[in-house]
């Protein structure tokens, strides 16, 4: 859809983060970070443990309340007061419905079957007619290789299957962009591949994605833009070839050698 990278500048902005700051008490975790993801972009956020990657991602859909800065989703600025708190709950809920979030710990709803997980928000929030929601859900489950598991409860699935179901659940709301927070970090090594394959397929079809990951090789392959966070600031960013191939800062060099 957006193969022509030279046309990048013309594509609409899907997510823009401007001067984002976040403190927990007196601990300033994000010290003014910015990011722009145009439609079809895959942005990877890398960095050491505690550098603020999850916090940055979670501020985009206000799972964490920012302390300052500006968030725009689909060209629409999220209304917030001077302290960073969202001021228009309806707007926030509507914007959240255009962002599919995938968590490190899957977070499937354990009292619902896989299929029920997928149709929950379409039916109860987006008011999609149930038969249509079920049909979409089945198509998505087939895509992530879980067609036979629709009636299973999450507790009876492997970690890899749960994460693929969680990705399908996020896709089921028809999101404009996907947010991934270390989607493979909680998985046994032999299950990582099946989840990365699903994410790679989404990248290949031109999905807009912001991906926090420790999988450097994967980030290098799928990302259009890589951000290296350190201590709450963007220490270095650029295309993967530059960030991984020719790192400039000493910290990034050290980080890359430490993660192999």
């Amino acid at each position: 859809m957006f193969d022509d990278k030279t046309a990048k500048a013309q594509r609409p902005v899907a997510i823009r983060v401007e001067g984002l700051r976040k403190s927990f008490g007196s601990h300033e975790v994000l010290k003014g970070v910015s990011l722009t993801a145009r439609e079809g972009d895959v942005v990877a956020i890398i960095g050491g443990s505690g550098s603020g990657k999850s916090t940055m991602l979670r501020c985009i859909n206000f799972l964490e309340t920012p302390s300052g800065g500006q968030i725009e989703i689909g060209g629409e600025a999220v209304a917030m007061n001077a302290a960073g708190a969202p001021t228009d709950r309806r707007q926030l809920e509507r914007l959240r419905q255009s962002l599919g979030m995938v968590f490190q710990s899957f977070n499937l709803w354990t009292h619902m079957t896989v299929l029920e997980n997928l149709i929950e928000v379409p039916v109860h929030v987006l008011k999609t007619p149930r038969p249509q929601a079920v049909e979409t859900a089945r198509t998505l489950l087939a895509r992530v290789g879980l067609a036979e598991k629709e009636a299973a409860y999450p507790a009876f699935l492997s970690g890899g299957q749960q994460q693929r179901a969680a990705i399908a659940r996020a896709l089921a709301i028809g999101p404009k962009a996907m947010l991934f927070d270390e989607p493979t970090s909680a998985l046994d090594p032999e299950l990582v591949g099946e989840v990365l394959a699903v994410i790679r397929a989404l990248a290949d079809e031109g999905r807009t994605m912001i991906l926090v990951t420790h999988e450097m090789k994967f980030a290098r392959e799928v990302a259009d833009h890589v951000i290296y966070l350190h201590n709450g600031v963007i220490e270095e960013e650029g295309p993967p070839s530059a960030v991984f191939g020719a790192p400039q800062s000493a910290r990034l060099k050290q980080f890359l050698s430490s993660v192999g």
Partner: peptide, 20 residues
């Protein structure tokens, strides 16, 4: 995490309480 997942997809607080 399960409550967060519901909020992240735009469920209202009342719906989160009732459904999740």
């Amino acid at each position: 995490g399960q409550i967060e997942a519901a909020r992240a997809m735009g469920m209202s607080p009342l719906l989160v309480a009732w459904r999740i």
